[in-house]
Design a protein around this nucleic acid. Sequence first.
DNA 1: AAAGTTATGTGACTTATGACACACTTCCCC
DNA 2: GGGGAAGTGTGTCATAAGTCACATAACTTT
Lengths: 224, 224
Amino acid sequence: MSKQAEFAVILKMNTMFADLGADEIQRLSSLCHTQHLGNGEVLFQKGDAGDALFGVRRGQVRIETGASDGSRLTLNFMGPGDLFGEVAVLDGQNRTADATAGEASELFVLRREDFLAFLEREPKVAIKIIALLCQRIRWQSERMEESMLQPLPVRLARRLCALAADFGSEVHISQEQLGVFVGAARESVNRQLQAWRKEAILDLQRGRILLRNMTKLTAIARNE
Amino acid sequence: MSKQAEFAVILKMNTMFADLGADEIQRLSSLCHTQHLGNGEVLFQKGDAGDALFGVRRGQVRIETGASDGSRLTLNFMGPGDLFGEVAVLDGQNRTADATAGEASELFVLRREDFLAFLEREPKVAIKIIALLCQRIRWQSERMEESMLQPLPVRLARRLCALAADFGSEVHISQEQLGVFVGAARESVNRQLQAWRKEAILDLQRGRILLRNMTKLTAIARNE
DNA sequence: AAAGTTATGTGACTTATGACACACTTCCCC
DNA sequence: GGGGAAGTGTGTCATAAGTCACATAACTTT
């Protein structure tokens, strides 16, 4: 499969571009470049201009932010097929987090200027993008109002399910970082995980969580 | 001042259109219609197709939603100069709440079809709209992550400040509805308001709150 | 392998806030 | 002007989750 065809598949998988027609996707993916990163290499940092959209072809990129105490907190892991920086490429605002290669990686790059020129040539696509952004706004406000009002177990179960979708049943994450993800104290996370371990929903190891019973976990995530 | 000039001013005041150039605003406002509503008349209901954007010229429109128990909960008041339905007009999705005239009102109406045709004619404006939507997405995610994690006094102070910006220092709202706004129980809202009354930050009357010391209130809203 | 560092497990305590219960007041309307 | 209905004020209690304070376990570095 050509690089462009690969990139087209990745674009198509992202909610933001899922509704575009095959021809539009094809023209969009013809604008892509590729970029290689060595292990630990920094792709961009907080405050950099948001001048491109990235898709992971192989490897892994960590999206992280420097906490005030100097420690680094990982906000997300992007693996093959994941797309990141969609919003930055559209509005050109500064990056709000750092991106670092977690291993040697190859990325698809769609530069802002190319993308904007494309939108100007194809106003119908621009209108679709607008619709997609609007959906995202609706989705966000629904989620947020709903999500932060949920009790910790529900938030935690949801986050674990989301991580499982990306990484399978062996999630490699510290309880500390999980706490940051769901907005809770590490100790609270630990206590909940212990409770679930006793129910055989999952197993715990240092730096990793083994999901044993996704059925129960998704039931908790749905808040019964 | 002509209706169109008035509408142009209203568009300009809204964050969503604030960055557009004067000529673009002018062409956009030439597409507007007006509509009259009697007191209590229903403008649209939850589930209706989102086929237009509205601006209040005079009067007041309540945005509300029917709670499951049959009672109606007001989500927002739109007064002269306020714009609502921006997202629905862009993506054409269904309304997510009801809109009812709180008094005899006159509205500016910008129909979805006219607006989309306009965007197709002016792709540069479409790109600006995209940038504005992106800003809104960023703003939303920042706010939400921050806001729901804040303690009740902070959330309450912020909401009161926002209401004060719209209605001045005499905010006409029940404590019940204020509770819905900030996602808290009525009793908790009442207790916090009582505390602030004792500090002379505000006064309470049935169905209304008189803000006495905005300086202190904004300080609380900033979370010190 | 000893020492240091990071991640995890757990108990004791505190606090914010929701839930319930009920009294009191104001408004509206017949 | 009497009887609801809606809004408000307050006490008591329960609970979820944060904080603090350690103990322990697992990797890393020298």
